[in-house]
């Protein structure tokens, strides 16, 4: 994705922004809002995992920190959510920096890095489930007060557009990053860390910057999720589900591409929702799990026929040479 990324971003955002103005249902709106939140978390993951080749299995640590910060700052400290949002992002970024500092200084790579992030996320989950301050196992309920000043909107489209604004910001950030010297260093590090170091790249600093940025973006997704659901518990905020979704979406869409996480999240969650509507409810729940069986098979088939993600598939279909940045990283 080079300098021409701005136009596609603009078009994509406009199309997404116009979606709720057409004749669409709240079902779709709610789905799209949630999918965009997951896409935002995945965009964060993609900065570190897609461009930097550092596969994290524990982005829940950042998502959950953002979510809990958003909830706690409102409930415990009476802070306005608009003010709480940047704080939540900063806290998420700080957690990212701290985990990165420990893991990258110990030179953890590949599966070792992946699993240490997973372990941190689990520690956070267990602590949040036990600590009275976070509401422990009873969870944290943010009072329902539908006011724009409260980041809770009477008109759900407004919240959708707010989430879209964050996604758009992350798209621009990713595109700018991909063009920057920092992005070039990050990609160099992914392709060959030793070679990058030999060329004078301060790999620790680059990786730390990447994980901090990545965590901040994913924490924003957590904060938005807290505001959407208004209820948090440890399994929701720090549960493995979001680590997995944030990791899967970019792989499905296209690793290390600007649009990969967005397309991947929409495709993945859309497929899950469609199979549920088409099959799960058809049997009235009499055959539980049938829709997920179909979903799993479709996922495997999608990988078989689009090994380079959906973006790679579309490239191949119109016989274009593959852009350089979609390389493989080793988990």
């Amino acid at each position: 994705m080079t300098g021409s990324a701005r136009l596609p971003i603009l078009i994509a955002v406009i199309v997404l922004a116009l979606l709720p103005l057409g004749a669409t249902s709240n079902t779709l709106l709610n789905f799209m809002t949630f999918a965009l939140i997951v896409a935002l978390a995945a965009q964060g993951w993609n900065l570190l995992g897609g461009y930097g080749g550092q596969f994290s299995f524990g982005h829940a640590a950042f998502f959950g920190t953002g979510a809990y910060a958003m909830g706690l700052l409102q409930v415990r400290f009476g802070l306005n959510p608009w003010a709480a949002m940047p704080v939540a992002m900063l806290l998420g970024a700080a957690v990212g920096w701290a985990i990165g500092f420990l893991a990258f200084r110990a030179r953890l790579r590949g599966a070792y890095f992946a699993l240490v992030t997973l372990a941190f996320a689990e520690v956070f989950r267990i602590l949040a489930n036990a600590w009275a301050f976070t509401g422990a196992a009873a969870g944290l309920l943010v009072p329902l007060k539908l006011q724009a000043a409260n980041m809770q909107f009477e008109d759900k489209r407004l919240f959708y557009w707010l989430v879209l604004a964050f996604v758009a910001g992350a798209l621009v950030l990713t595109a700018e990053l991909a063009r920057s010297r920092f992005g070039a260093r990050l990609v160099a590090l992914r392709e060959n860390e030793d070679a990058a170091r030999a060329l004078g790249v301060d790999t620790l600093r680059v990786k730390l910057a990447a994980i901090t940025l990545s965590a901040g973006v994913t924490a924003a997704a957590g904060g938005l999720y807290a505001q959407k659901s208004l209820y948090l518990d440890a399994a929701i905020a720090y549960g493995p589900w979001i680590s997995v979704d944030a990791l899967l979406a970019p792989i499905v869409g296209g690793l290390g591409t600007v649009f990969g996480p967005l397309i991947g999240a929409l495709a993945l969650l859309g497929l899950g929702e469609l199979s549920k509507m088409a099959l799960g409810n058809l049997f009235g729940g009499a055959v539980p799990g049938i829709d997920l069986i179909v979903f799993g098979i479709l996922l495997i088939l999608a990988v078989a026929f689009a090994p380079r993600g959906l973006l790679g598939l579309f490239d191949r279909l119109i016989r274009r040479p593959r852009p350089a940045e979609g390389g493989e990283a080793t988990p």
Binding site: A12, L19, T27, L28, F259, L274, L311, F314
Partner: peptide, 23 residues
């Protein structure tokens, strides 16, 4: 890429929309 991305998004949206209105 431009054309493709937009088409992807439209297709995804249309697919979701089709089933939403299918009940």
């Amino acid at each position: 890429m431009t054309e493709l991305t937009r088409r992807t998004l439209l297709q995804t949206g249309a697919a979701v929309g089709a089933l939403v209105s299918m009940p």
